[in-house]
Design a protein around this nucleic acid. Structure first.
Lengths: 233, 233
DNA sequence: ACCCGTAGTATCAATGACGATACAACGGCG
DNA sequence: CGCCGTTGTATCGTCATTGATACTACGGGT
């Protein structure tokens, strides 16, 4: 089975700060010196030091270094460096979220567009989605953690919310995890849309197979990509 | 300024299929033979062929090849390969969405947790968020494309929807793009939450600075990461 | 029988990343 | 003054990736 995978980077001034760099910065922070950090990570001091300099050149004052003295000196990270590390971890966390989540995919046709947002005709109705530059036939993919379920009686007025895409359906499958429940909702035309909601939400709404629900998602949570084959023959 | 960056992969049987591989597959599809694909991409046939074999070993029948004949033979992609390419593009699209979107970050403290979902105490109230394994002080980051805005009069009943996190606030800043508007909402305690909604949504709801709104987001759209420094001293 | 463009394989060279090693400079302390 | 653990810098060897090159095998046309 294919697994979604990724690598995270923060690019600044042409330098890409990756996982390895962040581990390096954390080791320096932890150890208080680049020598001990290098030893701790099992890598050479020379290249570690050179890499820190490269990052400093691009990203600004990331370290404060002292040499000589009773303890021989040392290197400390600046707050700016810690902020960088934290930003990296937030970004990686967001990517992990994408990689961990299943998505629902269905075909459609772009019928209108304004900038990046397009109206796509599908089997179950019109969907607003982010479509970068394709036109014609596309496949829409909706992150299942972006799908909001509402009981039909309480469905918000379409005019009064930024939740543009709303579709009625019935709950089919239900897989309970430790904290999160994976619900499959069948829309018109038989299209299946997966929604990820917390266990507590499912219990409060008392959802189960056969129940009618309204599934909603924002236009910015739906993305369209075009057909793939450019075959010449 | 730092830019969010990433590389996308699909891993199958220990082989990581990346951007370069997908470009290779598309070139084969486009050109009809590996030789012409190699030339088209400006890379050597030998390694391209070897790489295709590696991917075939891992991912199954990706190509159908013929040699000899009037045209000398050629290589075609199977539907399975096209599906793989499309899956890659969908994944990359999802990552692009994450990288393009701004996020709102605010500090909080984990007060309770069930599996990956934690209740986090913040300046403006309790937030349900996905927190992998941290405890104590964390920073919550909310993707701004996951924030749903509703007019207070029409705010959905908390009990009847899977939108767990709801906070009242007032619109402060408003930056209009071509198709998408970036709204800053000030919550209790002065915390600022950024929401990305379509231009049409903003017009329909007639939102502007000073207006009261309810900002909502799902627990699965909020992620917490722990403090970064493990300093020993 | 030969030609041609393809698939398939083996081998060498260039490149880049990185560890290993060596050495100078620094500065408080005994 | 010399010791020590740092920060810096330069150089060399190793390894992995990949382009370059050369070769064989294939099979339908001419």
């Amino acid at each position: 089975m294919v697994r979604k995978d990724f690598e995270t980077y923060l690019s600044v001034e042409g330098v890409r700060i990756g996982e390895r760099d962040v581990e390096m910065l954390r080791a320096i922070d932890r150890c208080g010196s680049m020598h001990r950090a290098a030893e701790d990570l099992g890598r050479s001091y020379a290249h570690l030091q050179r890499r820190v300099d490269e990052i400093m050149d691009a990203a600004g004052p990331i370290t404060e270094r002292e040499r000589g003295g009773a303890d021989g000196g040392g290197t400390a990270l600046t707050d700016q460096a810690l902020e960088l590390v934290e930003q990296f971890r937030r970004l990686r966390g967001a990517f992990e979220g994408v990689a961990a989540v299943t998505e629902s995919v269905f075909p459609g046709t772009v019928v209108e567009r304004t900038g990046e947002v397009a109206t796509v005709e599908t089997e179950f109705g019109r969907v607003l989605a982010v479509v970068s530059d394709e036109r014609g036939d596309v496949r829409i993919s909706v992150r299942s953690d972006a799908v909001v379920l509402t009981l039909p009686a309480d469905a918000p007025d379409r005019e009064q919310t930024s939740l543009r895409n709303q579709f009625a359906g019935t709950v089919r499958d239900l897989q309970a995890g430790e904290a999160v429940v994976r619900l499959t909702v069948e829309l018109d035309g038989g299209t299946e849309l997966v929604a990820l909601i917390t266990r507590a939400s499912r219990e409060r709404m008392d959802l189960g197979p056969g129940d009618e629900v309204v599934a909603s998602f924002k236009a910015t949570a739906a993305r369209g990509v075009g057909a793939v084959s450019d075959r010449e023959n």
